[in-house]
Write a protein that binds this DNA or RNA. Sequence first.
RNA 1: GCCCGGGUGGUGGAAUCGGUAGACACAUCGGACUUAAAAUCCGAAGGCGAAAGCCGUGCGGGUUCGACUCCCGCCCCGGGCACCA
Length: 815
Amino acid sequence: MSHQTDSYFPAEVERKWQACWEEEGTNRYTHAELRRVGREGKPFFNLMMFPYPSAEGLHVGNIYAFTGADIYGRYQRLRGQNVFEPIGFDAFGIHSENFALKQGIHPMELIPRNVERFQRQLRRVGFMYDWDHTVDTTTPEYYRWTQWIFLQLYKAGLAVKKEAPVNWCPGCNTVLANEQVIAGECERCGSEVELRNLSQWFFRITKYAERLLTNLEWIDWSDTTKRMQGNWIGRSDGAELTFPIAGHEDSEICVFTTRPDTVFGATYMVLAPEHPLVERITTEEMRDAVEGYRSAVAATDLVSRKKTDKEKTGVDTGGRAVNPATGEEIPVWIADYVLMEYGTGAIMAVPGHDERDFEFARKFDLAIRRVIAGDGEDPDSQLDEAYVGPGRLVNSGDFDRLDWEEGKRSITAWLAEKGKATPQVNYRLHDWCISRQRYWGPPIPILYCDACGTLPVPEDQLPVILPRIEDYRPDASGVSPLARHSDWYITECPGCGGEARRETDVSDTFLDSAWYFLRYPSASNDQLPFDPELTRDWLPVEMYIGGNEHAVLHLLYSRFITMALKDLGHIDFDEPFKRFRAHGLIVKDGAKMSKSRGNVVVADAYIDEYGADTFRTYLMFLGPYQEGGDFREAGITGPYNFLNRLWDTALSAEEGPLDAAVEQKLHATIAKCTEDLEVLSYNTAIAAMMEYLNVVRAGGRVPELDAVRPLVLLIAPFAPHLAEELWERLGNHGSIFDHGSWPDFDPAKAVADSVEFVVQVNGKVRSRMAMARGITEEGARTAALDDPNVQRFIDGRPIRKTVFVPDRLVNLVVG
RNA sequence: GCCCGGGUGGUGGAAUCGGUAGACACAUCGGACUUAAAAUCCGAAGGCGAAAGCCGUGCGGGUUCGACUCCCGCCCCGGGCACCA
């Protein structure tokens, strides 16, 4: 029995410390503590993206993400920060609902079951979660405030109902936000998305487009994430130009262009088939053709409409517009390559300098005119394809010879003077459609009364409870299953006391997650969504770690909601997450893990066999955290052996002075780990600790206690249970995370006295020799010349030049 | 098509203000311990070569005393965007 206590049994150690953390409240704050620490301490809100609690249980991908975030939190805690690390469950939404339908279990039963299982699994991995501050978006206590946020936006005019062409998924029987449509398909079920005109609730995120974009310049986020958001917002600078319509002096065609410098080359125009002016400008002769084309386009779904590889189609309306620069009359066509939803739904076509227009002009034999000449081209150089590069203006009247950039400004100013141009900025970003014709979400808190019109549900009547209904399966009607329950949707009008109908759509699950970080500190507050004092002290979030798959969905929406709440006076910061870091994806055999591929790694078996500490360390050792890595079963024994050796070393260590070599390596290791943890370079930090342990144990020497004690702290963020146990066995009391602190290092001691010096002859390594740190060029050169092998390669030739890199190398250039 | 990220031993990966390529680990091989095996410990190892040495960081050029690192031109893989005017 006695030998047992000297061996590392992860299961035992982990059980012990998880129970201890639970009992002692090591990772929990009481309400009073949260308040006090927020006010007086060093509050550090360490956030990770809360999971969707699927029925399959915790995924290795989740564990990978959370482990990296937990390590960062534990590291900050050892550095003396008061770390608040909560977790919650994002359990509303189509995904849960579809799964519930498939299983035939009501989501109100399924979800709590999943959440419970997730909690159990999360505890096993040893995360530092404050289980007293958790959220579940499906509870009325939470979605009451999701509805409250909707109402605040509604009152501010940021939530509006409008009829619009929307993405309709025939598989899920609901609308989707643009962000949820991937290459024309539903990101959930893969069905081809259709276009439907429906009345929907939108959040006017486009009002914030510019602010969402410019703040990207200063927030401390992963570049990849910022770039994706920037592209998504898609600002483009140009001008709106007006083209009079021949024979209709009372109306004109307005177009958006980023190339006003090419207006002299606009030889025709194209309207989107849905454009309201089509009716007016179409001539009698063309009417049949135009109507035919319009109905054909209307019958086309969004997917094929937006395909770029199909041949261009279109019809001449017979109408003519006047090019405001040249005064020429040019034909007006309609074509489906012009989209109603972007810009003004109309373009001036410049076939000489736009690939799409070029292709169209070629097909329909429309005039192509060069107005930009690149290097080596003249005004008459033939155009075999659209020239979209830089150059100088040609065939452009008084503007000839101007550089195109200058041309943009000059022509816009010239046309503006004539009332034909306005500088204009456009964004690719669309308003956020938040209504869903589904069951499993928070009902949108709106009432319709025949007498009073559209009314918000009074705040004191929140939450609007999602009723338990059994027939929650959606149909193709375009209305929510809740609309089948008049006992629920018929209610009393708060305005006139008469009969009112509830809005039967529920809100998008991305609204639930767009504000959950505000809720954590105030998770149990039933008076307010977020306590003003706690919010002031704990927010914005110090560090947020999550996947880049949410770069343009969750992260953009969260920023928008935060800005809106600030403008409405509820919080005093613009940006919710001071730092955001995207982690990589963990894959298996080079492919994303998925049930359909059958390559999902189940964590439980590995934790059973090796323990959570090994599993955590292994995941972080796979590769750079921010790049992800390939899960290979074999590799796990590396970290496992390392932790075992650490255990044995710690328990066999003795009191005594440190060897010089060990001391130097110790300081170097602390320095390296500190640097690496700051930037989430976990794999190299682990490698440094392994190297250090190899030095401590080299040649079977007896390890010193002073060599081991700091290492226990360095490993603590990775292997918290093991660290606690060793900390205790080394004679300490209480949790290492409360009583230990991250070790300091002395930069002077981190470098060795002797360095291995390289001698090169003509840039090739010819010798290596140990030299004293700080050796002079002369000293190094003399030593180098003493070396017979170096002499052999110099071969009696004169030394033309000596290159000296202090403490690294000397290169003798001969010949 | 456009914008990112990446191509390094048998494998995962280290090292990029230009300065010892392959740290650390996996797998492999050899040794110790064991009746034996597992576990553990010690050691070897980029390729070619007996050795000296030569060659080696996706490919082709270039700059440099010196290039995984910088420049030019390509190829391949992963991600994002895409008739956005």
